[in-house]
Every structure is written in structure tokens, then in C-alpha cells.
């Protein structure tokens, strides 16, 4: 959170996560090189550097596709939340692999000539007015630039200083990067490699990303709850499991997470200040509302992160009417103390 920054706040889970990521990367590249050499006719295999160009290019695309489906998968089932927790490391690793791909291409295809390699990158193919002949390299450069901006601002320092809204908007650029990469492949490698497997893989990846995004949106979509005299009905208090929340959505403003803690009812904004995670899908842990995405915590009584952290979210008034919980549609200012309602009077 925001009290201080380190390059990486290492913890055991992140180390285990990165171990698997690095293992997956090495497994893919080694398998690709071995399979290329083993399956090509004797003496007709690709040069070693061109094998690496293809290995890193295909790997970067697959990793980017995987990064994009983790979010919706975590919305559909909590089982994928561990993959979401350290997703930024996977994103940075994707950028690094894409950067290696680009560096090898610039060295091998654009280096050693009479033109500056970076001029050659944009000028060697002048067919910008043709579709099939389009210089697909430029699309890859644009995608890499977006991925660089995202990797460079992936740290919580930028999240806090740019603000969650601007940071989130910037990182939505990943979808533009993905579209550019798909076009980069379709107008580049697929113009040479005609095996149907490549076209099928590209289509499957695009359908998986687009389809799971829609499924994730549908899974987390909630109808607007009607308010009467400024109060929204949450439901029977007894039906809210202890330590969990029910999410209600007013006609305007952010969704509201209504938590039960023993006999007490608290309501806060459903939107985590870190990366807009759904707090209502979290739990009360150690007396704090805990975000399911990255474990950010807020005190129930005032929506403020426990010291030394300083994040604040809006709180809401609640009341009990004949055993039913109701929450005010009007938020208090972030960090405002709000007394809880009680399902039963204290003995």
C-alpha cells in the first residue's frame, strides 16, 4: 500500500508464482527449439536465431492472451484469484519476452545494412497503403510501446500517484496492444506460415480473450437495486454469512458492499482503491474488510486502511427494518466513521 515503496515487495507466494512463470517460459523456449530442430527435414531447419525469434514471438502472444483471461476467470471462479494476485509480474515478463523478440528481429533482419536499423524498421517495407503487404512490423512496435508503458507503470507507486482511475484507463490499453499484436501476426507470420494450425490458434486465442471478457462482465454484472426514500433493500440480515458481504447497486455511483460481522452490519464502497477490486467478494479478516484481489484492507468502522496505510473508501449508513437490512444510497465521504447497525440488540 502507500506508506512506502520497494521495487518488489517480496513474499513467499510471489516467489512461488515467479518460479512457475520462469519455469513455464524456459520450458516453452527449450521445447520450441528442440521441436523445431527435431521435426524439420535434415538440413532444412531454421537458423538458430530465427528459431528464437519465433519462440519468443509466439510465447509473448500466448502470455499476453493468458494475462488477459486471468481477470475474467477470477471473476467467474475464486479459484483463479491466486493467479490474479501477482498478475503484474506475469505482465512484465510478457513485455520482457516481447522485447527480446523485437531486439532479435531488429538485430537479425534490420541490422548490418546501410540503413539505421530503426529507420529500416519503418522504411524497408513502404506498402502502408496495402492490406496483405502492410508493414506488420510497425504494428508490433506500437504494441510493444503500449506494453512498455504498462510495464513501466505497473508498480503501486504509479497506481497511487496517477490515481486509480487514470491508472486503470492507462492499463486498459492492453486490449489495444492485444488487437495490434493479433494484426501483427495475421499480416506478418501468417502470410508465410500457411499451416492451418496457426490460423486456428490465433482464432482460439482471440475467442478465448473476447469470450471470457464477456463472461466475466456477465458474471459480475448486477441489476440496479431500487431505492425507497434513499434506502436500498439488502435482504434478510440472517441470510448474510458472517464475515462476508452482499453487493447492492444504486442507480448512481459505485456499488455498495454490505458486510456482516457477527451481529453488526457495515457498508462500504465495493471498489478497492488499489486496482478497483470487488471488495464485496472479499472477507473480513483480522477485523478488516479484505480485498479478494491483492489483500488490501480497510477498517469496517471508517473505511480507512489500518496504519501505516492511508487508503480510504466511502462508508454508508445502514439500518435494520423488521429484520431486513437496508443501506443508504448516499455515500459518506471516504474515511468517514459510520456506526454499524445491529441485527439483535446487545444483551
Amino acid at each position: 500500500m502507500t506508506h512506502g515503496y520497494r521495487a518488489v515487495s517480496w513474499m513467499p507466494f510471489k516467489k512461488r508464482y515467479d518460479f512457475w512463470v520462469v519455469g513455464g517460459i524456459l520450458t516453452y523456449i527449450v521445447s520450441f527449439v528442440i521441436a523445431t530442430i527435431a521435426t524439420q527435414p535434415d538440413g532444412e531447419s531454421l537458423t538458430e536465431l530465427q528459431i528464437l525469434i519465433r519462440a519468443t514471438g509466439t510465447l509473448a502472444f500466448l502470455m499476453l492472451s493468458f494475462v488477459l483471461v486471468i481477470g475474467p476467470l477470477a471473476r467467474i471462479t475464486p479459484r483463479f484469484r491466486p493467479l490474479l494476485f501477482n498478475r503484474r509480474h506475469l505482465g512484465v515478463a510478457t513485455f520482457v519476452i516481447a522485447l527480446v523478440h523485437a531486439a532479435l528481429v531488429i538485430l537479425w533482419y534490420h541490422g548490418f545494412g546501410t540503413l539505421n536499423p530503426f529507420v529500416s524498421l519503418f522504411a524497408s517495407n513502404p506498402n502502408y497503403d496495402a492490406l496483405a503487404g502492410f508493414p506488420f512490423e510497425s504494428l508490433g512496435v506500437l504494441a510493444l510501446t503500449i506494453m512498455f508503458l504498462m510495464a513501466a507503470t505497473s508498480h503501486d507507486f504509479w497506481n497511487a500517484n496517477l490515481g486509480p482511475g487514470l491508472w486503470k484507463a492507462l492499463h486498459m490499453g492492453v486490449y489495444l496492444a492485444f488487437a495490434l499484436v493479433v494484426a501483427h501476426i495475421a499480416l506478418g507470420a501468417l502470410q508465410f506460415e500457411k499451416h492451418v494450425a496457426y490460423t486456428v490458434l490465433l482464432i482460439v486465442a482471440v475467442l478465448a480473450v473476447v469470450g471470457l471478457q464477456f463472461a466475466g462482465v456477465l458474471a459480475s454484472r448486477r441489476p440496479v437495486d431500487a431505492a425507497a426514500d434513499g434506502w436500498l433493500s439488502v435482504g434478510e440480515g440472517a441470510e448474510i454469512d458472517d464475515g462476508t458481504a452482499v453487493i447492492v447497486r444504486p442507480a448512481e455511483g459505485e456499488a455498495i458492499a454490505v458486510f456482516r460481522h457477527g451481529e453488526e452490519i457495515y457498508a462500504v464502497s465495493n471498489v478497492c482503491r488499489h486496482q478497483a477490486g470487488p471488495l464485496g467478494e472479499g472477507r473480513i479478516v483480522d477485523g478488516c474488510i479484505t480485498c479478494p484481489w491483492h489483500g488490501f484492507q480497510y477498517r469496517m468502522a471508517d473505511g480507512t486502511s489500518p496504519p501505516p496505510y492511508t487508503e480510504k473508501i466511502a462508508t454508508y449508513a445502514t439500518r435494520i427494518v423488521e429484520g431486513r437490512v437496508e443501506v443508504s444510497a448516499m455515500p459518506n465521504a471516504p474515511g468517514t466513521p459510520q456506526a454499524p447497525s445491529r441485527l439483535r440488540s446487545a444483551p
Binding site: Y28, L46, E193, A197
Partner: peptide, 27 residues
């Protein structure tokens, strides 16, 4: 789940890499 996902990741990475590489045309 995380252990199974990790093992699946390694097996999947090797399988996909092998399939993609084997589908390349001779040059």
C-alpha cells in the same frame, strides 16, 4: 489448485511449443 495449475502450465507450455514448432514449414 496452484500446484496443479503450475504443473499444467509446464506440460501445456511444452505441448503447445512442440505443436507450434512442428507445424512450421521447411525452409
Amino acid at each position: 489448485f496452484f500446484l496443479k495449475a503450475g504443473a499444467g502450465l509446464l506440460i501445456g507450455a511444452a505441448g503447445v511449443a512442440g505443436f507450434v514448432a512442428a507445424s512450421q514449414r521447411p525452409v
